[in-house]
Write a protein that binds this DNA or RNA. Sequence first.
RNA 1: GUGGAUAUAGCUUAGUUGGUUAAAGCGCCAGGUUGUGGCCCUGGAGAGCGUGGGUUCGAGUCCCACUAUUCACCCCA
Length: 421
Amino acid sequence: MLTTAPKGTKDVLPGESYQWHYIENIMREVCRVYGYDEIRLPTFEHTELFLRGVGDTTDVVQKEMYTFEDKGGRSITLKPEGTAGAARMFVEHALYNEALPKRLYYLNSAHFRYERPQAGRYREHHQFGVEVFGAPQSAIDAEVIMLAMAVLRRAGLPNLEVELNSIGCSKCRPAYSQALKEYLHAHEDELCGTCRERMERNPLRVLDCKVEGCKAVAAAAPKPVDYLCQECAAHFESLKAYLQMENVKFRVNPFIVRGLDYYTRTVFEILSPDLGAQSTVCGGGRYDGLIEAVGGPQVAGIGFGMGMERLLLALEKMNVDIPKPERVQLYVAPMGEEASLAAFDLVSRLRQAGVKAETDCVGRSLKAQLKYANKLDCAFVAVVGSDELAGGAWRVRDMMGGEETTRTPEEIFQMLTEATK
RNA sequence: GUGGAUAUAGCUUAGUUGGUUAAAGCGCCAGGUUGUGGCCCUGGAGAGCGUGGGUUCGAGUCCCACUAUUCACCCCA
């Protein structure tokens, strides 16, 4: 117990952190080009925020939140998703008074959901995500989807599928809900137990039930797309036109409705079909009513979340080549105390000059040091003993070929600092 | 929350029909010339077999429970 990480959590080991850096750099770089600014938000929020923002009928809120009372008697929840917190920040700091739209992103943001872990699903996972406030036009929907695709493509992920849907707005939703409920009532006996329950409260969710009987009912059910009001329909058409113009392949999937209540109009998912059961790498949509729901003015919003562990898992499954971290440029192998001091000094100078260098600090024999340097995959090893100290020239071994030259410490310093320039 | 699978050294595994001090490869450490790596050789450290019960003269090997891991459902990133 003591030496086991809690269920559903995962350590990033020293040999794998470079993979995170790889995707983080891509995310930052793509966001830079698209003009998105980074935000960092708290890991926990008042429980109330998620009840109001995400919706208290959703599975996420009802059964997956890590909620507890703090010592001051407040109900606190570790964030299960990122958008509600961003909306809260937007309202709290009155960012709607600044130039809109506000394009924002976050990464390595920890999210918590109490679920049974499995491949690509953790109780604590990290998301890269984007939120844009104050842009109701469909051009932003297209931009956000393209940004997500740009990140995934740059990371090297093949076989991506974009699935798109529109679930309408507060104007057209009631008529649709009505029609859907009537239809579902007529087919109630064909539905599974859960669907019969949620049919009243949250009928949309029946559409993506995976039970065979429900799938059959859902297949013939009224679709949100057929009930869109004129504005929503136009918005959706326009989004599709943007994507087509930019050659973003997508498929309209009338069954994606997403599990968070704040979505309006556009919802989308990006799938990596080779990922197994948890194939959604990225999911998001528009939330034009959320800012108001958390107490702000009426400001449109759209965003997505991308699972970083899932992206990494997909890259691994697809054997995507991630650039290895920089090797140690020089290992200095001293023999004797005096040599150790000289070695320490050269290494310090190299480090200050930005060269990745290392020397012995556990008193190993020369042979053992060379073995160690070999394991580290060092480019060069410099050997210093009493002879070298006396003559002023150290032996420098190229670990690739094995050939040795002699150079003064100053020459070694020059050689390596030149190389990094 | 539901269902299935698995649980032996740091890692990957072997452990015959239950029977002496639990085995191998990799990795780690040290040697194989008194100052030289990657190959090879030798030696060493390291598990008492997930935990707790039970059956038995005797269990890593059988039974039960628990826990953990894992895959799928559900949900979602």
